[in-house]
Write a protein that binds this DNA or RNA. Sequence first.
RNA 1: GUGGCUGUAGCUCAGUUGGUUAGAGCGCCUGGUUGUGGUCCAGGAGGCCGGGGGUUCAAGUCCCCUCAGCCACCCCA
Length: 414
Amino acid sequence: MAKLQPVRGTRDLIGEDSRTHLHIGDLARATAGGYGYTPIETPVFEFTEVFKRTLGDTSDIVTKEMYTFEDKGGDSLTLRPEGTAGIARAVLSGGLQNEMPLKWCYAGPMFRHERPQKGRLRQFHQIGVELIGVADPVGDIEVIALAAATLDALGVLPATILELNTLGDGESRATYRTALVGYLEGFRDRLSEDSQQRLDRNPLRILDSKDKGDQAIVADAPSFSDYLTPEAQAFFDSVRGGLDDLGIAYQLNPRLVRGLDYYCHTAFEFTTDQLGAQGTVLAGGRYDGLIEMMGGQPTPGVGWAAGIERLAMLTGPAPAGARAISVIGIGDAGEKAAAQVAQDLRQAGFTVELNYRGGLKRGLKRADKIGAAAAVFLGDDELARDGVTVRNLDDGSQSDVTLAGLKDHLAAYR
RNA sequence: GUGGCUGUAGCUCAGUUGGUUAGAGCGCCUGGUUGUGGUCCAGGAGGCCGGGGGUUCAAGUCCCCUCAGCCACCCCA
């Protein structure tokens, strides 16, 4: 263990950072609430099997990015790398299959053992929503509309574009995959080293390779849209029509893919060019195969997740809360009386900071530092006349106020 | 996991071809004001120069290793 450093890829959220994260979570929950989504909290760790089964043994997340450990009972546990698997598990272990549709939103930490860089940490935070039990495109449309509304509430929607694609159904994907691999095999030697591996493991990923040579080869590859079944095409058309009806702009991106098998039909991402290489702010899609893969009945689902750290880089710091009133006691009797005044003001709903010791000068310095709007002095002079002195910290003006009239006087500072 | 760049005070950074007690601004503390902040003035505290090893008469400065940060690849929110 290195000396008193945070673990690599983790960081403390203090002051403004913490406030901003909470603000983003609050706004997301409020927005989702307006769509009828209620909060869910699942554990931050699960049996490793939960993620292995759902993410697939060959995915990068499972093979190299999971924080996995053995607990004292000998079970293999894993810190969740994403939110959906745990929620699917909750559906099954809670016997909620008959409560469909389930509409949930969540916010919390996720863990992936990756090399940190801009917009990427080992412990990071996501907000997300899941709509489980709706097979119709109206579900996709609602979830995307909610995503846009959330980004709009945060004020970052104009900084993003919505990219949209379809992964089709299983049949569409299977025939396309065969055609794509057939085409790419002819160029195997000329593909980048990474893509040669992808060709065996995850050929669809080659479509969004950043390698220039790969891109040239991919340009002439078979197009997925030619392989969509009529049903899958109709589904996608419905989603697009619904977004058009709601006035939600999007850009088709045929190279937008998902690595995992249980994804199908709609895939979408809100991306930005303001965050360096990590441009994806919010990503989601339909995962009809997920719950079945975990051992449940076939159950449709669609949802998304967004990175709070990435959102925070776009929103900037959240607005500060109410300015405080500093209550400063002077002398033993004054400090005692000040404690009572502070208590009364707090119960009346004021934000109050009580000085602990050190006298008026120290109290005022502190008041200035925390940005208090006014200071209330309480010393022998004030006690003698059963009142307090109120100082306006913006203009320095002071007034004598009776104890009885203090709340009314301070109303101007709320 | 791979690559590039960077680690000097709480923060942001200077520090000459290797040369004597390592500096600045901001912040912090004290005093000027034994009942007045933010401005001003004076003073002060605070550094194993990320860590370890090496070269040298001499290392913050050069070399190696290691840790960390940043950025990119991979992958992803």
